[in-house]
Computed example of a mutant assay.
Amino acid sequence: MSRKSNLVPDSVDSFDCKRQLTRGKVFMHQRVAIVVFEWTKTIQCGERILKIPLVKIDDSILCPVTAYNRMCRMIPAPEESPAFVIKRNASLKSVTYKQFQSKLKRIISFTGRDPRLYSTHSFRRGVASFAFQARVPSELIQLHGD
Rank of each mutant, 00 (worst) to 15 (best):
F37V: 07
S122P: 10
R125F: 10
I107V: 03
Y68T: 10
I86Y: 04
F110V: 01
I52D: 03
V85W: 00
C72V: 11
Q142A: 12
V65E: 06
A134L: 11
K87I: 09
P64Q: 09
L7T: 06
K105M: 14
A67R: 13
G145H: 02
R31K: 12
R88H: 13
T111A: 05
A134I: 10
S138W: 03
R116V: 10
V65N: 11
A33L: 06
K93S: 08
T66Q: 15
M28N: 04
A33D: 02
H144E: 04
H144Y: 04
L92I: 15
V65H: 07
R124A: 09
V136W: 13
R125K: 11
P64V: 11
V35K: 08
Q101T: 08
P137S: 12
A90L: 11
S5H: 05
P137C: 10
L7I: 08
N69V: 10
H144S: 05
S129A: 07
F27T: 13
Q44A: 14
Q20E: 15
R116L: 04
V85F: 05
A134M: 14
F132T: 15
T111P: 07
K18I: 02
R116F: 03
L104K: 05
K105S: 05
I61W: 01
K93H: 15
K51D: 00
D146L: 08
V32L: 03
A131Y: 07
T96Y: 02
R106A: 09
G46H: 13
R135Q: 11
R116T: 02
L54M: 06
R31D: 05
C63W: 09
F110M: 06
I61C: 02
C45V: 02
L7H: 15
R113S: 04
L21V: 03
F84D: 00
I49P: 03
D10F: 14
R19A: 03
T40K: 12
T42E: 00
C63Y: 12
L50K: 00
P78N: 13
T40A: 01
K87F: 00
S5N: 12
N6P: 11
T96R: 15
G112W: 15
H144V: 15
I34A: 15
N6L: 05
V127Y: 05
G24C: 13
W39K: 06
V32H: 13
C63P: 03
I49L: 09
S109P: 00
M1G: 12
K25Q: 05
A134R: 15
M71F: 01
T66A: 12
R116I: 03
S102L: 09
A83I: 04
